[in-house]
Simulated scan of single mutants.
Amino acid sequence: MPEVIFPGPEGRLEGRYHPQPQKDAPIAIILHPHPQFGGTMNNRVVYNLHYAFHNMGFTVLRFNFRGVGRSQGEYDQGVGELSDAASALDYLQSMNPNAKHCWVAGFSFGAWIGMQLLMRRPEITGFISVAPPANMYDFSFLAPCPSSGLIINGTADRVAPPKDTHTLVNKLHEQKGITITHEEIEGAGHFFEDPHMEEMIGTVDQYVRRRLTENTR
Rank of each mutant, 00 (worst) to 15 (best):
T179D: 14
R12E: 10
T40M: 09
T59W: 14
E74M: 09
E186M: 13
E184G: 08
P161N: 03
R209A: 07
Q20I: 07
P161H: 06
K171R: 15
N98E: 10
Q116Y: 01
E81G: 01
G154A: 08
N153P: 10
A52V: 14
P133D: 04
F37T: 02
G149C: 06
D138K: 13
H34Q: 01
F6R: 02
G202C: 09
P133W: 13
G154W: 13
G38W: 02
M200A: 06
F141E: 05
M200K: 07
F139W: 11
D90H: 15
S129V: 12
I185W: 01
Y137E: 00
Y17T: 11
T125M: 10
L13F: 11
W112E: 05
H190D: 01
E198M: 08
N215S: 11
L82F: 10
T59S: 14
V45T: 11
A105W: 04
G110S: 07
P97N: 03
E174Q: 14
P21D: 12
F63K: 08
V159R: 08
H166F: 12
V104F: 07
F109W: 03
M136V: 09
P195G: 06
L13V: 13
D90C: 13
Q22W: 04
S129D: 01
F109N: 02
P7N: 08
A28M: 08
K163S: 14
D205A: 05
S147R: 11
T213D: 12
R44T: 14
N215C: 02
H18F: 08
Q116K: 11
T167W: 10
T181I: 15
N170E: 15
D84V: 09
N170I: 15
I29T: 00
V159N: 02
Y137C: 08
F127Y: 14
D24T: 15
S129P: 03
M1S: 11
Y17P: 03
R121W: 01
L49A: 04
A131F: 12
G67M: 10
H101V: 08
V45E: 03
P35N: 04
G80R: 06
V45M: 07
E14V: 07
N64K: 01
K176S: 12
K100G: 01
Y75I: 12
F141Q: 05
D164V: 05
N215D: 06
H173S: 04
R66C: 04
S140P: 03
I152L: 07
Q22P: 00
N153D: 15
K163N: 14
F6P: 01
A85C: 08
I29W: 03
F109M: 00
S140L: 07
E184Q: 14
P26F: 08
P97A: 01
H196M: 04
N170P: 11
Q36V: 11
L89E: 02
G78F: 15
M115C: 01
Q93C: 02
L82W: 10
V169M: 03
K163M: 15
P133G: 07
P35F: 06
N43Q: 05
G154H: 12
R70G: 02
Q22D: 10
R120W: 10
E81I: 00
H18D: 07
C102H: 09
E214L: 15
A143E: 12
Q175F: 09
V204P: 00
I128N: 08
P35H: 06
D138E: 13
V45W: 05
I29C: 02
Q206W: 12
